[in-house]
């Protein structure tokens, strides 16, 4: 009956993971049924590649200006053209991937931890924890989210870290609510009651019965909010918050190109905007794909 044996035994008793073959087969089925998801996975690989290796592969230094080559349209030398300082837009767009991607991943990871934890605890235990988490979420939700993010970054100061924090905060209610609802439903489920009768403590119930079962839903939530996180960060830097010039970042590059649109130099704003759009589009499709993959109703 001592705890030592129990701890030692745990790793050997691995029943929990569903058979991986069926998951793989299901993934193949999803992709074959909806090729768009396959495209999204491909795009995601491309974005990941650009974020990891982009800076060492681009043809020009993204910060080097060349006044002789200012405001040139797309050409063989400059695929996406050059901006008012003669910087190569293609290099800047590729290099920016890492920053935008990092902001999105960091903020989603942060809110996943905080919101997920708060929501699960609130849903499972109820009582005052639930009230406090609910009140915090309600207060955040009482603001138009982008406006709140503006206020937060303006107050905390203009930095990339603060963009990550602000994006995480405005997504908090979403995560907390989903996690809370899922935990709350499962608290009364038969299998949780059965586990209670088997002598599991509250925390053990939470960790072995509740969390593994709501994890898929939270992962779907994460992939669905990635796109929104990138959009939000780019929007903030578009109005001059967070990232400062000359740092290459998609939002700020679109802002720099905005004033040239009316005079016809479309490429300065277009390519970073296109990159941003592609990334968000890819994440949204990916989110739908992951949901199909995880949704047990579609797995028969």
């Amino acid at each position: 009956m001592n705890d030592m044996t129990r701890v030692e035994m745990e790793p050997a008793l691995r029943f929990d993971a569903p058979p991986s073959t069926s998951l793989f087969a299901h993934a193949r089925h999803i992709v074959s049924e909806n090729p768009v998801t396959g495209v999204a996975f491909g795009l995601f690989g491309l974005i990941l590649f650009a974020a990891l290796f982009g800076p060492s592969l681009v043809p020009y230094d993204p910060l080097a200006s060349d006044t002789n080559a200012a405001l040139q349209g797309p050409s063989r030398a400059h695929w996406f053209g050059t901006d008012q300082l003669g910087r190569d837009i293609f290099s800047r767009v590729i290099v920016a991937t890492r920053l935008d991607f990092t902001i999105a991943v960091a903020s989603v990871a942060l809110v996943f931890l905080l919101g997920g934890l708060a929501g699960v605890t609130a849903g499972f235990f109820g009582g005052w924890v639930d009230k406090v988490v609910g009140r915090i979420a309600d207060t955040i939700m009482a603001f138009p989210l982008f406006v709140l993010a503006m206020g937060i970054v303006a107050a905390l100061g203009n930095s990339v870290t603060n963009i990550v924090i602000a994006t995480a905060i405005i997504n908090f209610p979403l995560y907390a609510r989903v996690a809370r609802a899922e935990a709350n439903v499962r608290r009364e489920a038969g299998f949780v009651r059965a586990a209670r009768l088997s002598g599991n403590s509250d925390w053990r119930l939470l960790l072995t019965q509740i969390v593994p079962n709501i994890m898929p839903i939270m992962v779907v939530q994460m992939s669905l909010t990635m796109g929104y996180a990138i959009l939000n960060a780019a929007g903030l830097s578009f109005i001059g918050l967070g990232v400062r010039p000359p740092t290459p970042e998609w939002g700020i590059m679109v802002a720099e190109g905005a004033s040239f649109i009316v005079s016809g130099e479309w490429w300065i704003a277009f390519f970073p905007g296109l990159a941003l759009m592609t990334a968000v589009f890819c994440f949204n499709l990916l989110g739908d794909g992951v949901r199909d993959l995880v949704d047990p109703q579609r797995r028969t």
Binding site: G227, Y228, L231, A234, G235, F238, G251, V254, A255, G257, A258, I261, V262, S263, G264, W266, A269, F270, G273, L276, M277, V280, F281, N284, L285, D288
Partner: peptide
Amino acid sequence: TAGVSLPVFFTGLLLVYVFYFLLGWSPAP
């Protein structure tokens, strides 16, 4: 899917380019 993927400031700029600069249908923004 496309609607949520389009950064709103980017859509605006595209519309300006097409309808103001290229086509001249709409007044200056």
